[in-house]
């Protein structure tokens, strides 16, 4: 009996908060590591179209082609940006060939196109992608709220 009474009489030991900073730091480091900073500096303005039948896009071997109005000029002519730099339609084929190392269907090409762009330039881009044998592409869209 004595044993039990002894315990209850003692006050609860205080929880040590000395390790709290360490726990928070670990959390902080976790978030810092997980955070992926934007790799591409987007130089074109685009507003993606909305659609409802969506798939998640693969992240491996991703090439992003942006098509939209340039941020640096006032002309309405759509410009093409591959990953990080402006490009012409004719640059797409050598670029894809180089990045894929000549292997067919290695890359996942994501087209981020402004919804006001006309299909002419997109068809040209698609033809270049087909020539480079990278047939898996996807049109990036926003989710449509029904």
């Amino acid at each position: 009996m004595n044993k039990f009474r002894k315990n209850t009489r003692k006050g609860n030991p205080e929880v040590s908060t000395a390790s709290l900073p360490d726990i928070i730091f670990i959390l902080l480091f976790f978030f810092m590591v997980v955070t992926v900073l934007r790799q591409n500096d987007v130089k074109v303005n685009f507003k993606l179209p909305e659609a409802s039948q969506l798939d998640k896009l693969d992240k491996e071997d991703k090439i992003t082609i942006y098509i939209g109005k340039s941020k640096f000029s006032n002309s309405d002519k759509p410009v093409i940006q591959i990953n990080d730099a402006f490009a012409e339609v004719s640059d797409i084929y050598p670029f894809l060939k180089m990045t894929s190392g000549g292997l067919p269907n290695k890359l996942n090409t994501v087209l981020k196109v402004d919804s006001e762009v006309t299909m002419g330039i997109i068809s040209d881009v698609k033809t270049e992608i087909r020539k480079a044998d990278q047939l898996r592409i996807s049109y990036a869209t926003m989710t449509k709220n029904l």
Binding site: A51, Q53, L54, D55, K56, L57, K59, V110, K126, I129, R130, L135, R136, I137, S138, Y139, A140, T141, M142, T143
Partner: peptide, 9 residues
């Protein structure tokens, strides 16, 4: 990223 996946001919 979400979008419509297409396989080109």
């Amino acid at each position: 990223d979400k979008g419509i996946k297409v396989v080109l001919p």
